[in-house]
C-alpha cells in the first residue's frame, strides 16, 4: 500500500481514500476520475452548488448507491470490513416506527450479535453522553422532530463507527433544536474523535462544525477548494462572530459564488 500524497503534508493518515471515482446519471457524467482523501478524526463538511452530487458522494462512499468505476477504501479496507454510521435527512422515514426509540438505538448492536449486557452498557453510555431528557420507551412518532433526529444520531453512533455520515441532518429542524443537536454532536466528536462527513446546504453550519470544508464545483464535479477551519473546540455561539469564523465563511462564500457563476 502506498501512502497517498496528502499524508506527507502534515495531515494524518486518511480514513477514506477515493481514487478514480466515476458516476453518471444518464449520459451526463457527475463524477469523472474523482480523487479525494478524507482525513481521520476530523469533521468534514461537504458544500457545493445545487445538483453537484453532495449526497450522491456520501451515498456512494457509504455503499447506498452504486458507481461505475473507481475505488473507495477505508483505511485500506473495503466497506464490507468497515463499520459506518449514517444519519438521514428524513428521520421520520429512517427510524423504525414499530420499535420504541430505545429499541431503535439497540437495533444495530443486536444486528451485530452483541450480548445483552454489552448492548445495555453501550446504550446507557450513549444516552448519558447525549443527556437525553425524554422518554426513550416511546415510539418515534410520539417524539418531536428534534428528538427523533437525536434518536437517529444515537442509533448511528452506538456501534462506534469508524466514520459517521450525516446527510443534511438539521434541514428539517427548527433553529433551537439545530443549535442543541450541533452542540451535542460536537461534544461527542470531542470525546470520541469519530470521523464525520457532513453534507450541508447551510454555509454557516458547515463552517461552524467543520475542521475542513470540502467545496465542490458544478458538474462534472471536481474539488473547488479544501478550506481548513482550525478554531479550537468547543465552538459556541460566540464563535460565530469571531474574526476567524467570519473570514473563513466569507472566503468560502467567495469560492462558492465563483463556482456557481462559472
Amino acid at each position: 500500500m502506498t501512502r497517498p500524497p496528502q499524508a506527507s503534508g502534515g495531515r494524518t493518515w486518511p480514513a477514506i481514500t477515493i481514487r478514480g471515482l466515476c458516476k453518471s446519471f444518464g449520459p451526463a457524467p457527475l463524477y469523472r476520475d474523482f480523487d479525494l482523501d478524507i482525513p481521520r478524526n476530523k469533521i468534514i463538511a461537504v458544500f457545493g452548488p445545487n445538483g453537484c452530487g453532495k449526497s450522491t458522494l456520501i451515498n456512494m462512499i457509504a455503499g447506498l448507491m452504486p458507481y461505475e468505476r473507481g475505488e473507495i477504501l477505508f483505511d485500506g479496507k473495503t466497506l464490507k470490513d468497515t463499520k459506518v454510521g449514517y444519519v438521514f435527512q428524513n428521520y421520520r422515514d429512517a427510524l423504525f416506527p414499530w420499535k420504541r426509540a430505545i429499541d431503535n438505538i439497540r437495533y444495530p448492536l443486536a444486528l451485530a450479535g452483541m450480548a445483552r449486557a454489552e448492548i445495555a452498557a453501550r446504550v446507557d453510555r450513549i444516552v448519558a453522553a447525549f443527556d437525553v431528557r425524554f422518554d426513550l420507551a416511546r415510539y418515534p412518532y410520539e417524539l418531536s422532530g428534534g428528538q427523533q433526529q437525536l434518536v437517529s444520531i444515537m442509533r448511528a453512533l452506538v456501534p462506534e463507527p469508524e466514520v459517521l455520515f450525516l446527510d443534511e441532518p438539521f434541514s428539517a429542524l427548527d433553529y433551537e433544536m439545530t443549535l442543541f443537536i450541533r452542540e451535542k454532536l460536537q461534544q461527542v466528536f470531542m470525546e470520541t474523535g469519530t470521523t464525520m462527513v457532513l453534507v450541508s446546504h447551510d454555509l454557516e453550519e458547515a463552517v461552524f462544525l467543520a475542521d475542513i470544508v470540502l467545496l465542490l464545483t458544478k458538474r462534472p464535479t471536481q474539488i473547488a477548494e479544501i478550506i481548513d477551519f482550525t478554531v479550537p473546540r468547543p465552538r459556541t455561539v460566540a464563535t460565530l462572530s469571531t474574526p476567524a469564523f467570519v473570514a473563513t465563511k466569507a472566503h468560502t462564500l467567495d469560492v462558492f459564488q465563483r463556482e456557481v457563476r462559472k
Binding site: A62, G63, L64, K83, V84, G85, Y86, F88, N90, D93, A94, L95, F96, Y107, P108, L111, A112, R155, P159
Partner: peptide, 14 residues
Amino acid sequence: AKRTRVMAATVMGA
C-alpha cells in the same frame, strides 16, 4: 416499503 428504512438497515450491516 420506505426506501430510506431499507437503506438505514443496509448501512447498519443488515
